[in-house]
Simulated assay, not measured.
Amino acid sequence: MLDTTSGHAHVLDRGHGLYYGIAHNEKQLFVAARNRLVSSDIDPAEERGDVLVFDRSLRLCERLQAPFPLRDLHEIAWHDGKLWLTSSHDNMIAIWDGQVWERWYPLGAQDAGDVNHFNSFMFDQGLVWILAHNRGPSELLGFSLETRQLVETVAMGNCGHNIWREDGELYSCSSAESRLLSDSGFVLDTGGFPRGVAFDASTRCVGVSALTERKSRDFTSGKVMVFERDWSLRHEIDMAGEGLILDLCRLPAGFALAHSAAAPSLWASITRAHKRVARPEQVFALMET
């Protein structure tokens, strides 16, 4: 957990492997935990991820476990009373309504394995958009929430992550090209491997990780680029040696540590954070393995 104003950092949890995916409703904050690192010798097929549930005082109060394996969890989202999870290893979306778990295979092929590497959500105008990373040229896939039918496809970026819309434009991180893109021609070069985007009324934050071979990713370096709303760079937060930055989320109003009067302003989940942030210019907090 990081405060982008004071630089205060606080560890909420560690020891559950790689953390990827943050969502919230009015009462709870959800964090996806794979319980395995990318560099682990455990076969990916044996991975069993779950969801850590924190209350409004940021205390871990529950761990959600599906009746089927959640493997290679990526982004998660809360929408209309349900928790949505990307389970990339199985080309599958998991949905939890508070009591019952559902498996959805958006493009079919239940036993085909990780074909499209689904990793991000956006809910917009009756559609759920799912980002198909495709391990190359990526696509934003718009499915009807009512029928679950594919109704729109937008090709965008390479090895993409994250989807959002502003003023009618669709945006995404083209991670392999080290840039952010929109479907109307916006381009912002970030360097590295951009992934994880969080906004508030005055600030934009983008996670950028060093490019490296997959098995070495747990121990690479990252940074957070902090922009004004007009995308002019305010400053960068160096996270040398702390691992990948995988997801960012603005802490919702009303959530704060029970013993702290100041609510932090930004969340980041990364693969490895073996020490606390000591440098005062580092202005976001970490979820540790």
Score class of each variant (00 low, 15 high):
residue 158 N to K: 11
residue 82 K to A: 05
residue 156 M to C: 02
residue 219 F to C: 00
residue 186 F to I: 01
residue 150 L to F: 11
residue 190 T to D: 08
residue 92 M to P: 04
residue 202 S to C: 00
residue 201 A to P: 02
residue 134 N to P: 01
residue 95 I to V: 15
residue 111 D to Y: 08
residue 192 G to P: 01
residue 117 H to Q: 08
residue 221 S to D: 06
residue 124 D to G: 01
residue 94 A to V: 05
residue 170 L to G: 02
residue 112 A to K: 13
residue 161 H to V: 03
residue 204 R to N: 03
residue 85 L to Q: 07
residue 199 F to D: 06
residue 160 G to Y: 02
residue 121 F to R: 04
residue 88 S to L: 01
residue 134 N to Q: 10
residue 189 D to G: 10
residue 218 D to K: 01
residue 121 F to L: 05
residue 108 G to C: 05
residue 189 D to Q: 11
residue 124 D to Q: 04
residue 204 R to H: 01
residue 149 Q to D: 13
residue 153 T to K: 15
residue 103 R to F: 04
residue 169 E to T: 00
residue 214 R to T: 07
residue 184 S to E: 12
residue 165 R to K: 15
residue 177 E to L: 11
residue 103 R to D: 12
residue 83 L to T: 07
residue 178 S to V: 00
residue 160 G to K: 03
residue 136 G to T: 14
residue 114 D to N: 13
residue 175 S to N: 00
residue 169 E to G: 02
residue 131 L to W: 10
residue 108 G to S: 07
residue 219 F to Q: 08
residue 208 V to M: 09
residue 138 S to D: 12
residue 192 G to F: 00
residue 98 G to L: 07
residue 156 M to H: 03
residue 145 L to R: 08
residue 209 S to E: 12
residue 155 A to Q: 11
residue 97 D to M: 10
residue 184 S to T: 14
residue 195 R to A: 11
residue 207 G to Y: 00
residue 178 S to P: 08
residue 108 G to A: 07
residue 215 K to C: 03
residue 177 E to M: 12
residue 121 F to A: 04
residue 187 V to E: 14
residue 189 D to W: 07
residue 213 E to C: 04
residue 174 S to Y: 03
residue 153 T to H: 06
residue 150 L to W: 09
